[in-house]
Simulated scan of single mutants.
Amino acid sequence: MNITGNTIFIPGATSGIGLALARRLSERGNTVIVGGRRVELLDEIAAANPGIDTVQIDTTDAGSIHSAAQTVLATHPSLNVVIAMAGIMRPEDWTSPAGFLETAEATVTTNLLGPIRLIAAFIEHLRTMPDATIMTVSSGLAFAPLRVTPSYNATKAAIHMLSESLRLQLADTSVSVLELEPPAVRTSLMPGQETSDFAMPLDEFVTEVVELIEAQPDATEIQVENVKFLRYGEARGDYAQVVETLNRRDPHAR
């Protein structure tokens, strides 16, 4: 992915990593469209960030994704990058007789069905562009599980394998698949994560991500240094120690 000259749609970018990345990509000379559910929040973002466009979208709703895709393509026919940013992370207790299933279902709908439907809505258009990118967002927890978020871990592992598989299918097209693998980052994704000593400062994370994209335009995975502890535990042969350390150090490690 080139770092500049793109038209980029980022649903789920009204806060946290998504909004910070949208701002930084806009500053790098890209046309950026931010998507989110709340119209008033989108209006605030547009007012505070001249040059960033907004579109209402609920990535848990297939109809909303279809409608938003039509709007984005009508107003920005040069769209060549889609970043599937939207996601939720909620604790679940599967040892409890009730309370976890609703959370698990919501997590799968948002974190897995949402990106699948989003990619499906844009894939034919992206294939018509001379240079296009689908950026998925997995997690360090796709490679080492956090005890309190089993469905989150599972959906991010699925996103990793979806990315790997789509890359194979799209190998002979103009569409590349780039997987962003965040570690714990200081956002409001989980309670207490914004102030966690274990989590990476948001600005530092986004700076490193943009630098990696610029330095490695042909990369298939974007891995900041902080995520490699989780990403490569199995390859290093210390997976069990990684899992133990992860679950001992911080309950909110992304």
Rank of each mutant, 00 (worst) to 15 (best):
I3A: 13
G5P: 15
I8S: 03
F9C: 10
I10A: 09
T14G: 06
G18F: 03
A20Y: 11
A20H: 09
L21E: 12
A22C: 11
A22P: 11
R23E: 15
R28D: 14
T31P: 02
V32G: 13
V32L: 04
V34K: 02
G35H: 07
R37A: 11
R38M: 04
D43W: 07
D43N: 11
A47T: 14
A47N: 08
A47G: 01
D61I: 10
D61E: 13
A62L: 14
A62R: 12
H66Q: 10
A68H: 12
Q70R: 15
T71Y: 06
L73Y: 10
H76P: 06
P77L: 03
A86V: 13
I88K: 11
M89A: 14
E92P: 07
D93P: 00
P97C: 10
F100E: 01
V108Y: 05
V108G: 01
V108R: 08
T109Y: 02
G114R: 12
I116F: 05
R117M: 13
I119L: 08
A121G: 11
H125G: 07
R127M: 11
M129D: 10
M129Q: 10
T133V: 00
M135N: 02
T136V: 05
S139D: 07
A144D: 06
A144M: 01
P150R: 02
Y152D: 09
K156E: 00
A158P: 01
I159T: 13
H160G: 05
S163E: 05
S165Q: 07
L166M: 12
R167K: 10
Q169V: 00
L180F: 08
L180T: 01
P183N: 14
P183R: 14
A184E: 01
V185L: 01
V185M: 06
T187M: 11
M190G: 00
M190P: 00
P191C: 07
D197G: 13
E208S: 06
E208P: 03
E211Y: 03
L212V: 12
L212N: 07
E214R: 12
E214I: 06
A215C: 12
Q216E: 13
P217T: 05
D218I: 05
A219Y: 04
Q223I: 04
Q223H: 04
E225F: 06
L230Y: 09
L230A: 08
R231T: 04
V243N: 05
T245R: 02
L246T: 13
N247L: 11
N247R: 13
R248C: 11
R249L: 13
R249M: 14
D250M: 00
H252G: 07
